[in-house]
Simulated assay, not measured.
Amino acid sequence: MDLNLTDKVVIITGGAKGIGAGCTEVFAAEGAIPVIVGRSPDVGRELIEQCGRGHVIEAELTSEEACKNAIEETLEKFGKIDGIVHNAGINDGVSLRQKPEDFMASLQKNIFHVFTLTHYALDALIESKGFIINISSKVADTGQGATSGYAASKGAMNSLTREWALDLAKHSIRVNTVVPAEVMTPLYENWVKTLDDPQKFIDEACARIPFEHRMTTAHEIANAVAFLASDKSAHTTGQIIYPDGGYVHLDRAYGTVEKG
Rank of each mutant, 00 (worst) to 15 (best):
N134S: 02
H213W: 10
R53N: 15
Y254P: 00
D92N: 15
L3A: 06
S233L: 05
N69S: 14
N69C: 05
N190C: 04
A59L: 06
S136T: 12
V37N: 05
D123M: 07
K77E: 14
S106T: 04
A124I: 13
N91F: 09
E60D: 14
L107D: 09
R39W: 03
P41I: 01
L3G: 02
P41K: 04
A59R: 03
Q50P: 00
V178C: 01
M104S: 10
Q199G: 00
E72S: 14
A88G: 00
H235V: 09
T216D: 03
V257Q: 12
D231F: 02
T142Q: 15
T24S: 12
N110C: 01
D123E: 15
D102G: 10
S137Y: 04
K193R: 14
A88N: 02
I48E: 07
N223L: 11
A156I: 04
V43H: 10
H235E: 10
I36S: 03
E72Q: 15
P198I: 05
G38N: 07
L166N: 11
F27L: 12
F112E: 11
G260Q: 08
K17V: 12
V183H: 08
N176A: 13
D197H: 11
Q239F: 01
I81V: 14
K154T: 05
F211E: 09
H86Y: 02
H86G: 02
I241M: 13
T216A: 13
S106W: 07
E212H: 12
I11W: 00
T237W: 07
N158M: 14
K8I: 10
G255P: 05
I132V: 15
A226T: 09
G15F: 05
G14T: 06
G31C: 08
T13C: 05
E189Q: 14
F211M: 13
E76Q: 15
V85L: 09
E64P: 00
A218S: 12
V179H: 06
V35H: 04
M1P: 06
E65I: 15
E220L: 09
Q108W: 00
R174G: 03
T74Q: 07
L195N: 11
D231A: 07
E163L: 12
N190A: 15
F227M: 08
A21L: 05
I71W: 04
P34Y: 10
P100A: 11
T6A: 14
A88S: 06
S137P: 03
E64C: 03
G20Q: 09
Q144D: 15
E212F: 14
V9P: 01
T217F: 11
D2P: 03
T74L: 08
K77L: 13
V257K: 13
Y247W: 15
I135E: 00
F27P: 01
I240K: 03
I57R: 02
W191Q: 13
I11P: 00
L195Q: 14
T216I: 10
G155I: 02
A226Q: 04
R53A: 14
